[in-house]
Design a protein around this nucleic acid. Structure first.
Lengths: 239, 239
DNA sequence: CCAAAAGTGTTGAGTATACACCCATGA
DNA sequence: TCATGGGTGTATACTCAACACTTTTGG
Protein backbone atom coordinates (compact mmCIF):
# COMPACT_ATOMS: atom_id res chain seq x y z
CA UNK A 1 0.00 0.00 0.00
CA UNK A 2 0.92 3.51 0.55
CA UNK A 3 3.08 4.03 3.49
CA UNK A 4 3.77 0.38 3.78
CA UNK A 5 5.42 -0.05 7.08
CA UNK A 6 5.72 3.64 7.85
CA UNK A 7 4.70 4.70 11.28
CA UNK A 8 2.15 7.46 11.14
CA UNK A 9 4.15 10.50 12.16
CA UNK A 10 2.06 11.00 15.27
CA UNK A 11 3.03 7.55 16.61
CA UNK A 12 6.77 7.89 16.24
CA UNK A 13 9.16 8.65 19.04
CA UNK A 14 10.19 12.33 19.06
CA UNK A 15 13.62 11.67 17.57
CA UNK A 16 12.10 9.84 14.64
CA UNK A 17 9.66 12.66 14.06
CA UNK A 18 12.45 15.21 13.88
CA UNK A 19 14.45 13.03 11.55
CA UNK A 20 11.65 12.04 9.21
CA UNK A 21 9.85 15.35 9.22
CA UNK A 22 12.79 16.99 7.54
CA UNK A 23 12.98 14.35 4.86
CA UNK A 24 9.39 13.58 3.94
CA UNK A 25 7.98 15.63 1.11
CA UNK A 26 4.42 16.91 1.20
CA UNK A 27 3.88 17.46 -2.50
CA UNK A 28 0.58 18.65 -3.81
CA UNK A 29 -1.23 15.98 -5.76
CA UNK A 30 -2.85 16.95 -9.04
CA UNK A 31 -4.66 15.25 -11.87
CA UNK A 32 -4.47 16.16 -15.56
CA UNK A 33 -6.77 14.72 -18.19
CA UNK A 34 -5.98 14.29 -21.86
CA UNK A 35 -9.38 14.54 -23.54
CA UNK A 36 -9.86 13.01 -26.98
CA UNK A 37 -12.63 13.01 -29.53
CA UNK A 38 -12.79 12.20 -33.22
CA UNK A 39 -13.89 15.24 -35.17
CA UNK A 40 -13.71 16.59 -38.68
CA UNK A 41 -9.92 16.61 -38.69
CA UNK A 42 -9.44 13.12 -37.28
CA UNK A 43 -8.36 12.59 -33.70
CA UNK A 44 -8.39 15.80 -31.69
CA UNK A 45 -7.15 16.87 -28.25
CA UNK A 46 -8.99 19.38 -26.11
CA UNK A 47 -6.71 22.00 -24.63
CA UNK A 48 -7.30 24.92 -22.30
CA UNK A 49 -5.44 28.17 -22.13
CA UNK A 50 -4.27 28.97 -18.62
CA UNK A 51 -5.57 32.28 -17.32
CA UNK A 52 -3.05 32.76 -14.51
CA UNK A 53 -0.10 31.30 -12.70
CA UNK A 54 3.44 30.94 -13.95
CA UNK A 55 2.27 29.42 -17.24
CA UNK A 56 -0.44 31.99 -17.98
CA UNK A 57 -1.26 32.00 -21.69
CA UNK A 58 0.06 28.52 -22.34
CA UNK A 59 -2.10 25.57 -23.32
CA UNK A 60 -2.63 22.61 -21.01
CA UNK A 61 -4.96 19.73 -20.38
CA UNK A 62 -7.79 20.00 -17.88
CA UNK A 63 -6.31 19.59 -14.43
CA UNK A 64 -6.51 20.51 -10.81
CA UNK A 65 -5.42 19.67 -7.31
CA UNK A 66 -6.93 16.75 -5.43
CA UNK A 67 -9.26 17.87 -2.67
CA UNK A 68 -9.83 16.56 0.82
CA UNK A 69 -11.62 13.23 0.72
CA UNK A 70 -11.42 12.91 -3.04
CA UNK A 71 -10.28 9.84 -4.97
CA UNK A 72 -7.96 10.34 -7.94
CA UNK A 73 -10.71 9.33 -10.35
CA UNK A 74 -13.06 11.71 -8.61
CA UNK A 75 -10.62 14.58 -8.90
CA UNK A 76 -10.07 13.85 -12.59
CA UNK A 77 -13.81 13.79 -13.18
CA UNK A 78 -14.28 17.08 -11.36
CA UNK A 79 -11.37 18.78 -13.12
CA UNK A 80 -12.80 17.68 -16.45
CA UNK A 81 -16.23 18.99 -15.51
CA UNK A 82 -14.76 22.35 -14.47
CA UNK A 83 -12.89 22.62 -17.74
CA UNK A 84 -15.51 21.39 -20.18
CA UNK A 85 -18.82 20.81 -18.38
CA UNK A 86 -18.56 17.10 -19.28
CA UNK A 87 -20.00 14.72 -16.72
CA UNK A 88 -19.96 11.33 -18.34
CA UNK A 89 -16.75 10.87 -20.28
CA UNK A 90 -14.90 7.58 -20.28
CA UNK A 91 -11.94 8.05 -17.92
CA UNK A 92 -8.81 5.98 -17.47
CA UNK A 93 -5.70 6.55 -15.42
CA UNK A 94 -2.47 6.62 -17.41
CA UNK A 95 0.66 7.42 -15.48
CA UNK A 96 1.98 9.57 -12.66
CA UNK A 97 4.54 12.28 -13.15
CA UNK A 98 6.47 13.23 -10.05
CA UNK A 99 9.70 14.96 -10.92
CA UNK A 100 10.00 17.56 -8.15
CA UNK A 101 11.05 20.19 -10.67
CA UNK A 102 8.34 19.53 -13.22
CA UNK A 103 6.44 22.47 -11.75
CA UNK A 104 8.88 25.28 -10.99
CA UNK A 105 6.71 26.76 -8.25
CA UNK A 106 6.43 23.71 -6.01
CA UNK A 107 6.62 19.94 -5.78
CA UNK A 108 3.50 18.67 -7.51
CA UNK A 109 2.88 15.01 -8.29
CA UNK A 110 0.42 14.73 -11.14
CA UNK A 111 -1.62 11.69 -12.05
CA UNK A 112 -2.39 11.78 -15.76
CA UNK A 113 -5.70 10.52 -17.13
CA UNK A 114 -7.15 9.97 -20.55
CA UNK A 115 -10.79 10.84 -21.27
CA UNK A 116 -12.85 9.98 -24.33
CA UNK A 117 -16.10 11.44 -25.61
CA UNK A 118 -18.20 10.68 -28.63
CA UNK A 119 -18.51 14.17 -30.04
CA UNK A 120 -16.29 17.23 -29.74
CA UNK A 121 -19.37 19.49 -29.76
CA UNK A 122 -20.44 18.26 -26.33
CA UNK A 123 -17.87 20.56 -24.69
CA UNK A 124 -19.28 23.30 -22.45
CA UNK A 125 -17.85 26.40 -20.82
CA UNK A 126 -14.65 26.31 -18.80
CA UNK A 127 -14.21 27.71 -15.31
CA UNK A 128 -12.52 31.05 -14.79
CA UNK A 129 -9.13 29.50 -14.26
CA UNK A 130 -8.94 29.07 -18.02
CA UNK A 131 -9.20 31.86 -20.54
CA UNK A 132 -10.55 29.49 -23.17
CA UNK A 133 -10.45 26.06 -24.66
CA UNK A 134 -10.48 24.48 -28.10
CA UNK A 135 -9.82 21.30 -30.03
CA UNK A 136 -6.47 20.70 -31.74
CA UNK A 137 -5.83 18.12 -34.42
CA UNK A 138 -3.35 15.42 -33.44
CA UNK A 139 -0.56 16.75 -35.63
CA UNK A 140 -1.01 20.39 -34.65
CA UNK A 141 -0.62 20.63 -30.90
CA UNK A 142 0.79 23.93 -29.71
CA UNK A 143 3.56 24.13 -27.14
CA UNK A 144 2.15 22.82 -23.89
CA UNK A 145 2.62 23.85 -20.26
CA UNK A 146 4.69 21.76 -17.86
CA UNK A 147 5.21 18.18 -19.05
CA UNK A 148 1.86 17.97 -20.79
CA UNK A 149 3.43 17.03 -24.14
CA UNK A 150 4.64 13.84 -22.53
CA UNK A 151 1.14 13.17 -21.26
CA UNK A 152 -0.23 13.71 -24.75
CA UNK A 153 2.16 11.15 -26.20
CA UNK A 154 1.47 8.68 -23.45
CA UNK A 155 -2.29 9.03 -23.89
CA UNK A 156 -2.15 8.51 -27.64
CA UNK A 157 -0.01 5.41 -27.25
CA UNK A 158 -2.45 3.96 -24.72
CA UNK A 159 -5.49 4.73 -26.85
CA UNK A 160 -3.93 3.18 -29.95
CA UNK A 161 -2.93 0.05 -28.10
CA UNK A 162 -6.34 -0.41 -26.49
CA UNK A 163 -8.17 0.03 -29.75
CA UNK A 164 -6.60 -3.26 -30.85
CA UNK A 165 -7.56 -5.43 -27.94
CA UNK A 166 -10.56 -3.80 -26.24
CA UNK A 167 -13.91 -2.33 -27.22
CA UNK A 168 -12.70 1.14 -26.18
CA UNK A 169 -13.96 2.57 -29.46
CA UNK A 170 -17.43 2.57 -27.90
CA UNK A 171 -16.34 5.56 -25.81
CA UNK A 172 -15.60 7.54 -28.99
CA UNK A 173 -18.96 6.81 -30.59
CA UNK A 174 -22.60 7.62 -29.89
CA UNK A 175 -24.91 4.78 -28.84
CA UNK A 176 -25.61 3.84 -32.43
CA UNK A 177 -23.47 4.40 -35.49
CA UNK A 178 -22.82 3.15 -38.98
CA UNK A 179 -19.96 0.89 -39.93
CA UNK A 180 -18.40 3.78 -41.82
CA UNK A 181 -18.39 5.85 -38.64
CA UNK A 182 -16.77 3.05 -36.67
CA UNK A 183 -14.13 2.64 -39.34
CA UNK A 184 -13.52 6.39 -39.31
CA UNK A 185 -12.78 6.23 -35.57
CA UNK A 186 -10.27 3.43 -36.05
CA UNK A 187 -8.64 5.12 -39.00
CA UNK A 188 -8.41 8.44 -37.15
CA UNK A 189 -6.80 6.95 -34.06
CA UNK A 190 -4.46 4.63 -35.93
CA UNK A 191 -3.73 7.27 -38.55
CA UNK A 192 -3.89 4.87 -41.42
CA UNK A 193 -6.57 3.85 -43.89
CA UNK A 194 -8.31 0.51 -43.38
CA UNK A 195 -9.74 -1.88 -45.91
CA UNK A 196 -13.49 -1.70 -45.56
CA UNK A 197 -14.19 -5.39 -46.14
CA UNK A 198 -11.43 -6.69 -43.93
CA UNK A 199 -12.32 -4.20 -41.22
CA UNK A 200 -15.94 -5.26 -41.21
CA UNK A 201 -15.00 -8.92 -41.04
CA UNK A 202 -12.54 -8.35 -38.21
CA UNK A 203 -15.00 -6.38 -36.12
CA UNK A 204 -17.77 -8.89 -36.77
CA UNK A 205 -15.50 -11.75 -35.71
CA UNK A 206 -15.01 -10.00 -32.36
CA UNK A 207 -18.74 -10.18 -31.75
CA UNK A 208 -18.85 -6.73 -30.17
CA UNK A 209 -21.75 -5.25 -32.04
CA UNK A 210 -25.43 -5.81 -32.43
CA UNK A 211 -27.33 -4.50 -35.40
CA UNK A 212 -30.16 -2.15 -34.51
CA UNK A 213 -33.37 -2.10 -36.52
CA UNK A 214 -32.85 1.55 -37.49
CA UNK A 215 -31.07 2.94 -40.49
CA UNK A 216 -29.19 6.16 -41.03
CA UNK A 217 -30.82 7.93 -43.98
CA UNK A 218 -28.79 10.52 -45.85
CA UNK A 219 -28.31 11.71 -49.38
CA UNK A 220 -27.64 8.17 -50.60
CA UNK A 221 -28.14 4.54 -49.79
CA UNK A 222 -29.18 4.19 -46.14
CA UNK A 223 -26.66 2.60 -43.76
CA UNK A 224 -27.49 0.05 -41.10
CA UNK A 225 -26.98 1.26 -37.55
CA UNK A 226 -25.03 -0.77 -35.02
CA UNK A 227 -24.51 -0.51 -31.28
CA UNK A 228 -21.96 -2.05 -28.98
CA UNK A 229 -23.27 -5.03 -27.04
CA UNK A 230 -21.42 -3.74 -23.97
CA UNK A 231 -20.86 -0.07 -23.35
CA UNK A 232 -18.29 -0.73 -20.64
CA UNK A 233 -14.74 -1.04 -21.83
CA UNK A 234 -13.34 -4.55 -21.58
CA UNK A 235 -10.69 -6.71 -23.20
CA UNK A 236 -11.83 -8.69 -26.21
CA UNK A 237 -11.87 -12.45 -25.99
CA UNK A 238 -9.11 -13.76 -28.24
CA UNK A 239 -9.69 -17.40 -27.33
CA UNK B 1 0.90 19.15 -15.99
CA UNK B 2 0.23 19.02 -12.40
CA UNK B 3 -1.63 21.91 -11.08
CA UNK B 4 -2.51 22.99 -14.54
CA UNK B 5 -3.85 26.46 -14.19
CA UNK B 6 -3.90 26.47 -10.41
CA UNK B 7 -2.53 29.54 -8.77
CA UNK B 8 0.13 28.63 -6.26
CA UNK B 9 -1.59 29.15 -2.94
CA UNK B 10 0.83 31.88 -1.94
CA UNK B 11 -0.17 34.02 -4.97
CA UNK B 12 -3.88 33.94 -4.45
CA UNK B 13 -5.95 36.70 -2.98
CA UNK B 14 -6.77 36.02 0.70
CA UNK B 15 -10.35 34.99 0.00
CA UNK B 16 -9.22 32.39 -2.48
CA UNK B 17 -6.69 31.08 0.00
CA UNK B 18 -9.32 30.62 2.63
CA UNK B 19 -11.68 28.95 0.20
CA UNK B 20 -9.16 26.66 -1.47
CA UNK B 21 -7.14 25.95 1.65
CA UNK B 22 -10.11 24.15 3.14
CA UNK B 23 -10.62 22.07 0.03
CA UNK B 24 -7.16 21.10 -1.17
CA UNK B 25 -5.86 17.85 0.24
CA UNK B 26 -2.23 17.46 1.19
CA UNK B 27 -1.94 13.71 1.03
CA UNK B 28 1.31 11.97 1.71
CA UNK B 29 2.76 10.41 -1.43
CA UNK B 30 4.17 6.92 -1.17
CA UNK B 31 5.61 4.34 -3.51
CA UNK B 32 5.20 0.57 -3.25
CA UNK B 33 7.16 -1.92 -5.32
CA UNK B 34 6.04 -5.39 -6.32
CA UNK B 35 9.30 -7.30 -6.66
CA UNK B 36 9.39 -10.44 -8.82
CA UNK B 37 11.95 -13.12 -9.51
CA UNK B 38 11.75 -16.59 -10.96
CA UNK B 39 12.89 -19.15 -8.40
CA UNK B 40 12.54 -22.82 -7.69
CA UNK B 41 8.77 -22.58 -7.36
CA UNK B 42 8.15 -20.54 -10.47
CA UNK B 43 7.31 -16.85 -10.29
CA UNK B 44 7.75 -15.46 -6.77
CA UNK B 45 6.87 -12.21 -5.03
CA UNK B 46 9.07 -10.68 -2.34
CA UNK B 47 7.10 -9.55 0.70
CA UNK B 48 8.08 -7.83 3.91
CA UNK B 49 6.48 -8.14 7.28
CA UNK B 50 5.66 -4.77 8.77
CA UNK B 51 7.29 -4.18 12.16
CA UNK B 52 5.04 -1.35 13.34
CA UNK B 53 2.15 0.89 12.47
CA UNK B 54 -1.50 -0.04 12.20
CA UNK B 55 -0.70 -3.07 10.05
CA UNK B 56 2.12 -4.45 12.19
CA UNK B 57 2.63 -8.13 11.47
CA UNK B 58 1.02 -8.03 8.05
CA UNK B 59 2.88 -8.62 4.81
CA UNK B 60 3.38 -5.86 2.29
CA UNK B 61 5.53 -4.85 -0.65
CA UNK B 62 8.57 -2.65 -0.19
CA UNK B 63 7.36 0.91 0.15
CA UNK B 64 7.91 4.28 1.70
CA UNK B 65 7.05 7.94 1.56
CA UNK B 66 8.48 10.21 -1.09
CA UNK B 67 11.12 12.57 0.32
CA UNK B 68 11.89 16.17 -0.40
CA UNK B 69 13.44 16.58 -3.83
CA UNK B 70 12.88 12.95 -4.80
CA UNK B 71 11.40 11.70 -8.05
CA UNK B 72 8.88 8.86 -7.91
CA UNK B 73 11.33 6.48 -9.56
CA UNK B 74 14.00 7.60 -7.10
CA UNK B 75 11.73 6.95 -4.14
CA UNK B 76 10.84 3.51 -5.47
CA UNK B 77 14.50 2.69 -5.95
CA UNK B 78 15.35 3.86 -2.45
CA UNK B 79 12.44 2.01 -0.84
CA UNK B 80 13.50 -1.15 -2.64
CA UNK B 81 17.09 -0.70 -1.47
CA UNK B 82 15.95 -0.19 2.12
CA UNK B 83 13.85 -3.33 1.97
CA UNK B 84 16.19 -5.66 0.12
CA UNK B 85 19.58 -4.01 -0.44
CA UNK B 86 18.96 -4.21 -4.20
CA UNK B 87 20.40 -1.36 -6.21
CA UNK B 88 20.02 -2.31 -9.83
CA UNK B 89 16.64 -3.93 -10.34
CA UNK B 90 14.54 -3.19 -13.39
CA UNK B 91 11.83 -0.80 -12.26
CA UNK B 92 8.62 0.24 -13.96
CA UNK B 93 5.73 2.37 -12.76
CA UNK B 94 2.37 0.62 -12.76
CA UNK B 95 -0.53 2.59 -11.37
CA UNK B 96 -1.44 5.06 -8.66
CA UNK B 97 -3.85 4.27 -5.85
CA UNK B 98 -5.45 7.27 -4.25
CA UNK B 99 -8.62 6.32 -2.42
CA UNK B 100 -8.50 8.58 0.64
CA UNK B 101 -9.56 5.70 2.85
CA UNK B 102 -7.10 3.13 1.52
CA UNK B 103 -4.90 3.89 4.52
CA UNK B 104 -7.08 4.28 7.62
CA UNK B 105 -4.60 6.56 9.38
CA UNK B 106 -4.34 9.29 6.78
CA UNK B 107 -4.78 10.21 3.14
CA UNK B 108 -1.90 8.54 1.32
CA UNK B 109 -1.61 8.39 -2.47
CA UNK B 110 0.58 5.48 -3.45
CA UNK B 111 2.32 5.01 -6.77
CA UNK B 112 2.80 1.30 -7.40
CA UNK B 113 5.88 -0.04 -9.17
CA UNK B 114 7.01 -3.39 -10.44
CA UNK B 115 10.63 -4.51 -10.01
CA UNK B 116 12.36 -7.48 -11.59
CA UNK B 117 15.60 -9.21 -10.66
CA UNK B 118 17.39 -12.18 -12.12
CA UNK B 119 17.85 -14.22 -8.96
CA UNK B 120 15.87 -14.34 -5.72
CA UNK B 121 19.10 -14.96 -3.77
CA UNK B 122 20.34 -11.45 -4.46
CA UNK B 123 18.10 -10.09 -1.70
CA UNK B 124 19.89 -8.49 1.26
CA UNK B 125 18.82 -7.36 4.71
CA UNK B 126 15.77 -5.16 5.25
CA UNK B 127 15.72 -1.96 7.27
CA UNK B 128 14.33 -1.95 10.79
CA UNK B 129 10.89 -0.90 9.67
CA UNK B 130 10.37 -4.50 8.60
CA UNK B 131 10.60 -7.50 10.87
CA UNK B 132 11.59 -9.73 7.96
CA UNK B 133 11.13 -10.57 4.33
CA UNK B 134 10.76 -13.65 2.18
CA UNK B 135 9.71 -14.92 -1.22
CA UNK B 136 6.20 -16.27 -1.82
CA UNK B 137 5.15 -18.39 -4.75
CA UNK B 138 2.57 -16.77 -7.01
CA UNK B 139 -0.28 -18.97 -5.84
CA UNK B 140 0.49 -18.72 -2.16
CA UNK B 141 0.42 -15.05 -1.23
CA UNK B 142 -0.65 -14.39 2.34
CA UNK B 143 -3.17 -11.70 3.21
CA UNK B 144 -1.60 -8.37 2.37
CA UNK B 145 -1.70 -4.98 4.07
CA UNK B 146 -3.70 -2.10 2.62
CA UNK B 147 -4.57 -2.57 -1.06
CA UNK B 148 -1.39 -4.47 -1.84
CA UNK B 149 -3.30 -7.46 -3.23
CA UNK B 150 -4.60 -5.23 -5.97
CA UNK B 151 -1.06 -4.11 -6.70
CA UNK B 152 0.05 -7.72 -6.90
CA UNK B 153 -2.63 -8.50 -9.48
CA UNK B 154 -1.90 -5.42 -11.47
CA UNK B 155 1.83 -6.15 -11.51
CA UNK B 156 1.34 -9.73 -12.67
CA UNK B 157 -0.98 -8.64 -15.46
CA UNK B 158 1.56 -6.07 -16.64
CA UNK B 159 4.45 -8.50 -16.53
CA UNK B 160 2.54 -11.15 -18.47
CA UNK B 161 1.47 -8.69 -21.11
CA UNK B 162 4.95 -7.26 -21.58
CA UNK B 163 6.52 -10.67 -21.89
CA UNK B 164 4.65 -11.05 -25.17
CA UNK B 165 5.68 -7.86 -26.88
CA UNK B 166 8.92 -6.69 -25.23
CA UNK B 167 12.28 -8.13 -24.25
CA UNK B 168 11.41 -7.67 -20.57
CA UNK B 169 12.50 -11.24 -19.85
CA UNK B 170 16.07 -9.94 -19.87
CA UNK B 171 15.38 -8.36 -16.47
CA UNK B 172 14.53 -11.79 -15.04
CA UNK B 173 17.70 -13.46 -16.35
CA UNK B 174 21.43 -13.16 -15.74
CA UNK B 175 23.60 -11.76 -18.56
CA UNK B 176 23.93 -15.17 -20.17
CA UNK B 177 21.62 -18.14 -19.97
CA UNK B 178 20.57 -21.28 -21.74
CA UNK B 179 17.50 -21.60 -23.89
CA UNK B 180 16.01 -23.88 -21.26
CA UNK B 181 16.41 -21.15 -18.64
CA UNK B 182 14.75 -18.59 -20.90
CA UNK B 183 11.89 -20.96 -21.52
CA UNK B 184 11.55 -21.56 -17.80
CA UNK B 185 11.11 -17.82 -17.23
CA UNK B 186 8.38 -17.62 -19.85
CA UNK B 187 6.64 -20.72 -18.55
CA UNK B 188 6.80 -19.47 -14.95
CA UNK B 189 5.34 -16.06 -15.73
CA UNK B 190 2.69 -17.32 -18.13
CA UNK B 191 1.94 -20.32 -15.91
CA UNK B 192 1.68 -22.73 -18.79
CA UNK B 193 4.07 -25.14 -20.45
CA UNK B 194 5.60 -24.15 -23.77
CA UNK B 195 6.64 -26.31 -26.68
CA UNK B 196 10.44 -26.24 -26.82
CA UNK B 197 10.72 -26.16 -30.59
CA UNK B 198 8.02 -23.58 -31.20
CA UNK B 199 9.38 -21.44 -28.39
CA UNK B 200 12.90 -21.48 -29.77
CA UNK B 201 11.66 -20.58 -33.23
CA UNK B 202 9.49 -17.73 -31.94
CA UNK B 203 12.29 -16.20 -29.87
CA UNK B 204 14.79 -16.56 -32.72
CA UNK B 205 12.37 -14.85 -35.10
CA UNK B 206 12.32 -11.87 -32.75
CA UNK B 207 16.06 -11.48 -33.19
CA UNK B 208 16.57 -10.56 -29.54
CA UNK B 209 19.42 -12.86 -28.67
CA UNK B 210 23.01 -13.37 -29.60
CA UNK B 211 24.77 -16.64 -29.02
CA UNK B 212 27.82 -16.39 -26.82
CA UNK B 213 30.87 -18.57 -27.42
CA UNK B 214 30.56 -20.18 -23.98
CA UNK B 215 28.64 -23.26 -23.00
CA UNK B 216 26.99 -24.26 -19.78
CA UNK B 217 28.49 -27.61 -18.74
CA UNK B 218 26.56 -29.85 -16.38
CA UNK B 219 25.86 -33.49 -15.81
CA UNK B 220 24.77 -33.97 -19.40
CA UNK B 221 25.05 -32.53 -22.85
CA UNK B 222 26.37 -28.95 -22.66
CA UNK B 223 23.98 -26.12 -23.55
CA UNK B 224 24.83 -23.08 -25.63
CA UNK B 225 24.68 -19.80 -23.74
CA UNK B 226 22.79 -16.83 -25.10
CA UNK B 227 22.60 -13.16 -24.14
CA UNK B 228 20.11 -10.43 -25.02
CA UNK B 229 21.35 -8.08 -27.71
CA UNK B 230 19.89 -5.20 -25.75
CA UNK B 231 19.65 -5.20 -21.98
CA UNK B 232 17.27 -2.24 -21.91
CA UNK B 233 13.62 -3.13 -22.11
CA UNK B 234 12.00 -2.15 -25.40
CA UNK B 235 9.08 -3.16 -27.56
CA UNK B 236 9.76 -5.83 -30.15
CA UNK B 237 9.52 -4.88 -33.81
CA UNK B 238 6.48 -6.59 -35.25
CA UNK B 239 6.89 -5.03 -38.73
C1' DC C 1 26.24 -48.13 -22.09
C1' DC C 2 22.83 -45.68 -19.79
C1' DA C 3 20.44 -41.59 -18.11
C1' DA C 4 19.38 -36.97 -18.91
C1' DA C 5 19.02 -32.76 -21.02
C1' DA C 6 19.99 -30.33 -25.67
C1' DG C 7 18.90 -29.67 -30.12
C1' DT C 8 16.30 -29.93 -34.50
C1' DG C 9 11.73 -29.92 -39.19
C1' DT C 10 7.54 -30.79 -41.21
C1' DT C 11 2.70 -30.71 -41.82
C1' DG C 12 -1.92 -28.93 -41.45
C1' DA C 13 -5.19 -25.59 -39.91
C1' DG C 14 -6.48 -21.28 -39.34
C1' DT C 15 -5.85 -16.39 -39.86
C1' DA C 16 -4.76 -12.10 -42.24
C1' DT C 17 -4.30 -9.57 -46.48
C1' DA C 18 -5.12 -7.93 -51.03
C1' DC C 19 -8.38 -6.77 -54.16
C1' DA C 20 -13.29 -4.88 -57.42
C1' DC C 21 -17.88 -4.89 -58.32
C1' DC C 22 -22.98 -4.35 -57.51
C1' DC C 23 -26.68 -2.02 -54.66
C1' DA C 24 -29.84 1.39 -52.84
C1' DT C 25 -31.08 5.83 -52.48
C1' DG C 26 -31.88 11.05 -53.18
C1' DA C 27 -31.41 14.58 -56.15
C1' DT D 1 -30.08 8.57 -64.76
C1' DC D 2 -26.38 9.72 -62.25
C1' DA D 3 -23.59 10.54 -58.31
C1' DT D 4 -22.55 8.89 -53.89
C1' DG D 5 -21.65 6.14 -50.26
C1' DG D 6 -23.18 1.16 -48.57
C1' DG D 7 -22.43 -3.47 -48.77
C1' DT D 8 -20.34 -8.02 -50.13
C1' DG D 9 -16.62 -12.79 -51.45
C1' DT D 10 -12.51 -15.15 -52.87
C1' DA D 11 -7.78 -16.60 -53.55
C1' DT D 12 -3.28 -16.50 -51.54
C1' DA D 13 0.37 -15.88 -48.26
C1' DC D 14 1.55 -16.33 -43.86
C1' DT D 15 1.49 -17.55 -39.13
C1' DC D 16 0.79 -20.70 -35.34
C1' DA D 17 0.30 -25.18 -33.18
C1' DA D 18 1.01 -29.97 -32.90
C1' DC D 19 4.14 -33.46 -32.82
C1' DA D 20 9.14 -37.31 -31.81
C1' DC D 21 13.56 -38.55 -32.63
C1' DT D 22 18.70 -37.90 -32.58
C1' DT D 23 22.80 -35.92 -30.26
C1' DT D 24 25.99 -35.07 -26.69
C1' DT D 25 27.81 -35.43 -22.53
C1' DG D 26 28.96 -37.30 -17.52
C1' DG D 27 28.81 -40.96 -14.63
Amino acid sequence: MANAGEFPIENRPPAAIAHEAAAIARPKVAVDTVLFAVGGRGLEYYLLQLAGGPNAGKWAFAGGLVRVGETLDGAARRALRDASALTNAYLEQLFSFGDPSRDPTSHVVSVAYMALIDNPKRIGAASSKYSGGRWFAAGELPELAYDHSLMAEYALARLRAKLEYTNIACALLPPSFTFAELEEVYAAVLERPLDRRNFRRRIMAMDLLRRTPEQRRGAHRPAALYAFKHRSVRAIQML
